[in-house]
Design a protein around this nucleic acid. Structure first.
Lengths: 298, 298
DNA sequence: CGTCAGTATAACAAAATGTTATTGTTTTCA
DNA sequence: TGAAAACAATAACATTTTGTTATACTGACG
């Protein structure tokens, strides 16, 4: 059978203290208790643990050799104690996030940094990818939560929809910057930067033009709002993007104006369904959702 | 207080087995015992340890995180168990040997290799140096045993004297090789290779010449018998050295002949006094002493 | 030599860990 | 669906480990 832990603790304490009495004090138990633990331990290992040397208990070469291992063990145990407290407080664990590429660079880093500030033992894996892959990853439970823009109907995934406000962005000094708000008809002569033609957001935007009998001049297509921001700032055209992303790039050559009608960008937060999530993941998603509040519709 | 080890063992066993009953079997105890350990553990850490998933106990993300640490701990404990057995069997430990430089290359390696063969967990540090330093090191307990050629009177050091047979060595084809034994008078016209002028062995050798009214022709002085062997083999002269070293170099251009009178080379084995030695060190010294037997006087 | 600090031993109390018996739960499968 | 089977939880109690206090032993030291 294994060696009783208490014996190792006693052995360690005596090595450190140099005598049984002080060791007992440091363990918060009585001296005879330590004496006996030691005697039992010595009996079971089969060699002398200590030599008495001028009133001090000095480890024999053998037990000195053992001591190093025992110290490692006790440190390890200590670590487990603290870790389990952190886990209970949701201050430790592994948080695996799959997100749209745009988030990996623009809004998420701030939120994540804040989240980790008082959770020093949380380890994070951040994986940016396309929505279909994000969904797969959540289903396979390779990731704990996903930030995407496509709703899922998969039974193993719980998705939470968040409607995000969008704005029209213009390069600095653009003629339309004089307007207090922008409408589809203002943009008919503009080169538009927009998301993929098959994206839900583009379809809605296009619809806004179509119902007014207007044609959206599609020139530049990109997956990410962040890329659209950079393109507009560089003078490549104008765009309608999530206000959150626009704010991130404000001051770098962008002008923001309300777009009417308001077209929501549907963000989707994904979780494995059925309470299989880690507590840290749940906490994180809560924090993340709160961070979206200023840019949310209603 | 620390987490009781048994709870960690139970937790680990259930994670591996996937259900409490098998875990109990693997621990060799009853199922209710494991159930309770688990319940207590869960209560004290403050979070759920398992989710039941189709008849299997699956760790929650939190406890999966803990599990890795627990596994390390248990491995560590296992290791301590085996280590203490090895230490008791004198099959583990650290053996620090300080020796004369000659031994580091000529006789010791063989002996050491044999010694370590069935003591795979013994770690060795071998430090060749001059006799004075060897003594210091033993006194300071930086080394467990010393192989030297100077007796010590230091109270903290126990020294054991071993008289070693010496022989005269000649280069192959030397005129004296015809003799069955060599005497001082045979060597008066020879260039002598010998140990340091202030070494005990040289003084004895010189004495053998002096009492016969002869003069030892000192040409080549070296600390080591092994070096003397190489020099003689190379035709640099003749010498009187420990038979043990001579045998080591026999067949490499050396001829051995008895030297009369027999002058013992006094080897000295050193140990820290007062039973402060590790058991491995004592074992080693015993083995080493035995290895000297064939070359010992009487 | 007696004192003192420290260690070991004895006798017993409390806590942890084990047991068997039994009762709830799920899962599985006819 | 519902009964059998498999498994987990609980209860009541035995055993072992770990703790306690009281006291005897031991070696270092003035």
């Amino acid at each position: 059978m294994g060696i009783p832990l208490r014996q190792l603790e006693a052995f360690h304490a005596v090595c450190r203290a140099g005598n049984v009495t002080k060791a007992a004090q440091s363990l918060g138990i009585s001296q005879p208790a330590v004496s006996r633990l030691l005697a039992t331990f010595s009996g079971s290992v089969g060699f002398e643990l200590f030599k008495k040397e001028g009133g001090r208990m000095v480890p024999t070469p053998e037990s000195a050799f053992l001591l190093r291992e025992v110290e490692r063990l006790l440190e390890n145990l200590d670590n487990i104690g603290r870790l389990s407290i952190d886990l209970a407080d949701r201050r430790a664990g592994h948080l695996r996030i799959a997100c749209l590429p745009g988030f990996a660079t623009s809004h998420l880093p701030q939120v994540l940094a804040g989240f980790l500030e008082d959770r020093p033992r949380v380890r994070v894996t951040l994986e940016p990818d396309r929505p279909e892959r994000i969904l797969e990853w959540i289903i396979d439970e390779h990731y704990d939560c996903g930030i995407s823009d496509e709703l899922s109907t998969h039974p193993m995934v719980e998705s939470r929809l968040v409607g995000m406000r969008t704005v029209c962005i213009l390069p600095l000094g653009h003629r339309l910057a004089a307007r207090s708000e922008i409408r589809p008809e203002d943009l008919i002569d503009e080169r538009m930067v927009h998301t993929r033609r098959d994206s839900a957001f583009f379809l809605q935007l296009n619809e806004a033009f179509a119902t007014r009998g207007l044609n959206l001049d599609s020139r530049l297509e990109t997956r990410q709002f962040t890329a659209a921001c950079m393109l507009v700032a560089a003078g490549a055209g104008v765009s309608v993007v999530s206000e959150m992303d626009a704010r991130e790039y404000e001051g770098r050559g962008l002008v923001l104006r309300p777009f009417v009608p308001q077209i929501p960008h549907r963000l989707v937060l994904l979780l494995p369904s059925g309470a299989r999530s880690s507590m840290v993941a749940l906490d994180f998603l809560e924090v993340f959702e709160a961070s979206l509040e200023p840019f949310r519709i209603r």
